[in-house]
Design a binder for these strands. Sequence first.
DNA 1: CTTGACGATGAAATCGATTTCTGCGATGGT
DNA 2: ACCATCGCAGAAATCGATTTCATCGTCAAG
Lengths: 324, 324
Amino acid sequence: MPTIYEVAARAGVSPATVSRVFNGQNVSAERSRRVREAAEAMGFTPNRVARTLRLQNSEVIALVIPDIENPFFTSLARGVEDVAQAAGYSVVLCNTDEDQAKEARYLDIALSANMAGVILAAAGDHSDLDALIRRGRPIVAVDRGPHGYDIDAVMVDSRAGGRAATKALADQGYRRIACVSGPRDVETATLRAEGWRAAVTGLGLDYDDQYLIYADFRVDGGNKAMRQLVELPEPPDAVFVANNLMGVGALQLLAERGMLPPVIGMAVFGDLPIFSPTPLAVTLVSLPARHLGVTAADLLLKRINGDDQPPRTIVLRNQIVPSA
Amino acid sequence: MPTIYEVAARAGVSPATVSRVFNGQNVSAERSRRVREAAEAMGFTPNRVARTLRLQNSEVIALVIPDIENPFFTSLARGVEDVAQAAGYSVVLCNTDEDQAKEARYLDIALSANMAGVILAAAGDHSDLDALIRRGRPIVAVDRGPHGYDIDAVMVDSRAGGRAATKALADQGYRRIACVSGPRDVETATLRAEGWRAAVTGLGLDYDDQYLIYADFRVDGGNKAMRQLVELPEPPDAVFVANNLMGVGALQLLAERGMLPPVIGMAVFGDLPIFSPTPLAVTLVSLPARHLGVTAADLLLKRINGDDQPPRTIVLRNQIVPSA
DNA sequence: CTTGACGATGAAATCGATTTCTGCGATGGT
DNA sequence: ACCATCGCAGAAATCGATTTCATCGTCAAG
């Protein structure tokens, strides 16, 4: 592959001039033409690695998410991409699989590859952002909190959503409302469970220790948790499920047992990736997934461009969609 | 961030020695210890950009896909990731949105960022791989063909799948079978349509020019195409839909009109990313999405490690799942 | 006619790691 | 006691682009 030196040789100028041609500096029309011709003829593409090394900076941002197979995150990713592309940035998507070790590895790459910034949906509660922050790389937390770091964040109100969803079930007349939540070390999981608990105690509903299950935010986890619930000696009459995929799993199980809502009431945090010929009697906490991504990317780009206001936390509204 | 020079200074050795410590060369135990201590104390992480520039090579592979919101591709991506991670490679996921210009941009980045290789599901029929190939970077085509390049490919048999799906509908007694396919310049779209046409003519079914619609492989495209079909003067009595997302769109429309299968017969190429509480009477051409990714990644890693056998095309079996 | 300013240009330093080349000291074989 | 070999370590070149610094004209103001 031709380098700037070979182009320079062919055009009969110095490498510095070639660089200036491609970076809009003062170069005479004649030389500029010669350089462009030579570059064209040789199929020259500037080497990004060298450029990045020199500039200590690249036009790539990392989007680190815990589950690439969850439509919530892919939708969020689309939002990030659209904004970043429009601003001339490329997005690389890093899937951590809810694994903090993988996450650490990707954050390390983002740092040592001089990426312009990071949008992070943390895999757990002790992400190490020190190195990135020391280096001055902007980071925006999305969906899940920054865990002790004072950085920008874009979130939905998990606690309020959990409470509202539970209350909606109570309003429909259910009394024994269980909760299927995610991993204990994931903030959104604990907050949604807290919202559920607040509603249960606040409304004086029946409470049972066994009504709160910490699963794993995956389809299968939702399925197993739901099975565990329906097989209790005193099963709940409704359930609040703390994410979309577990909602699918729970519905699968209930379908098998002929107990689909409204036989057992159900409310789900997030939008179900589901098609049902007959409308499902499920209350949804609908999330602005794409908009979360757009907002996070906007914030990150502002920081990259030098904005140094104190960190902001933006909470986007979620919307209760009553069951059909 | 500390560099190798600062670590060297602190440990009282030369930068070369620091490098050797981290790359497993001959260094005396004493110096090695001093270097490691210094590195630890300073929180040293080697700069990947500098390393990549020097080595002309990085341990990152690019996975370029047309639609990150399509579960088929995310599932494929999981397959790629699992294999790559295990081999110590990181995967960056690039979403082209079925846009050849975006694709070209990502391929350019892969090249000029010295990535180790590329797995590509092409956005159209004239991807330009010349530069990557000249540079000797391995490329594996996945799902969609290499379009004139003699490179490794991992595919499913779109034509056979289209034919089998159409035949399954005929076996169920449908006679006027339409086809909703994807963009004309996407190979899998045309092949699946060809398979449909082969079955229609081969089985002597009714044929109508208006029964073949080229849509866009998206939910909305499937919806609109289905509407167009049911509003024909002589509507089809069944439809073969050439991908999963359009299948969802078509089902949406049929649900609205109260014409869900089996009222109108339906077969879909790919697995529907939905859950239906009541079983859907849809015939599926089930695809080994994750396995496609695993196979492609295996192939790519072999090439990266120097395998120079002639290019292979691996065709994975797809499986007809009869309607419930 | 002189001086100052400015535009265009090339030489060389720089970014941070790896690697070749070179030299030094120690070991071992005869 | 001598020479070949080997292990270890540092100096310096290298990867390819950007940018500072210095130089040389040219042009305008005084």
